[in-house]
């Protein structure tokens, strides 16, 4: 009988552990809170912003005399900015990643390039603005212009493109390289026919992330590309790029801060959120799975 008493049984009544339960509750509450807040914010922006969006809103410029608002110029500016920045940064970023992954043999050089890339990705956008202004606008005499914005953005997204490309290049099996080199392919041939096609998806992911960054950017562009977007785009592309102009994000700031026109600001915010969601879905689609 005494033996029976001292033996532990695993089927005891569940021990109450108040601390444990509390901790579970806290984790759950915080998680639901964060997620709920995110969902709320996104829905709130859409509800506040979508009523402001109309065909006229999207296709005209602001008219102070008629007191109408329109964001067509900043849509065009944003598109130009994205397009030209990609034209500069994609070759540089992809090329740099190829150099690091396929050519570089000197460890110190690799270290220097990787250090530089990390540093660039850690610098806040307002400092890109200051540098871009001092260097591109003043020193290179580009003035406050879209082209100065393009050059500044190109440096900002360079680390994103380099990192994503490098990651996909690393994922290309070494045996493909051996196979091609073993048949007498030159390095450039190997890159052209195998490595680039294999890493296309990853490069596209980098491009999409970069577009997200450019569309979101405001601080740097406010300084180097300027604020006003009142005028309709000029016919001449070169002329358009050499003038100042605001992208959607900068325009949002302008409406909210200097005008206190929150309705328009939310309209732009809703458009930005829709773009962000679209880009996000696109990267997920590219990753080949809608749910991770």
């Amino acid at each position: 009988m005494t033996g029976e008493v001292s033996r532990q049984t695993v089927i005891t009544v569940k021990k109450r552990r108040p601390l444990e339960t509390l901790l579970y509750a806290v984790i759950l509450v915080v998680s639901i809170g964060v997620v709920g807040l995110t969902a709320f914010l996104i829905v709130y922006i859409l509800i506040q912003g979508i009523p402001a969006i109309s065909v006229k809103f999207l296709t005209t410029a602001e008219n102070p005399i008629l007191k109408t608002v329109g964001i067509f110029p900043s849509i065009v500016n944003t598109l130009y900015m994205v397009l030209f920045t990609l034209l500069i940064s994609v070759p540089l970023g992809v090329g740099g990643a190829i150099y690091l992954n396929e050519y570089a043999k000197n460890r110190r050089l690799v270290g220097a390039i990787e250090f530089a890339t990390e540093t660039l990705s850690g610098i806040p956008s307002i400092l890109y603005g200051v540098f871009g202004y001092v260097f591109f606008c003043v020193l290179l005499r580009l003035n406050v212009s879209l082209i100065a914005g393009v050059l500044t953005l190109s440096i900002m997204v360079l680390p994103i493109l380099m990192r994503t490309t490098q990651e996909t290049l690393k994922a290309v099996p070494q045996s493909y390289r051996e196979g091609a080199l073993g048949m007498g392919a030159t390095k450039w041939h190997l890159i052209r026919t195998i490595l680039l096609p294999c890493s296309l998806k990853g490069i596209l992911t980098g491009v999409i992330l970069s577009i997200g960054r450019m569309v979101s950017e405001s601080a740097a562009l406010l300084l180097v590309a300027g604020g006003s977007a009142m005028y309709m785009p000029r016919g001449n592309l070169f002329e358009q790029m050499s003038h100042s102009g605001s992208t959607l994000s900068v325009e949002l700031y302008r409406y909210a801060m200097s005008r206190g026109d929150n309705k328009t600001a939310f309209g732009i915010a809703a458009i930005l959120i829709i773009i962000v969601i679209a880009l996000n879905l696109l990267t997920r689609f590219l990753a080949g799975r809608l749910n991770r």
């Binding site: 995110t38 922006i45 600001a265």
Partner: peptide, 20 residues
């Protein structure tokens, strides 16, 4: 699903946060 939502949070432009 939650991770996707939180990723989205990371992509929202700062001016939108400012506005909110």
């Amino acid at each position: 699903a939650l991770r996707a939502l939180i990723d989205l949070l990371a992509g929202i432009p700062s001016v939108v946060y400012g506005l909110l």
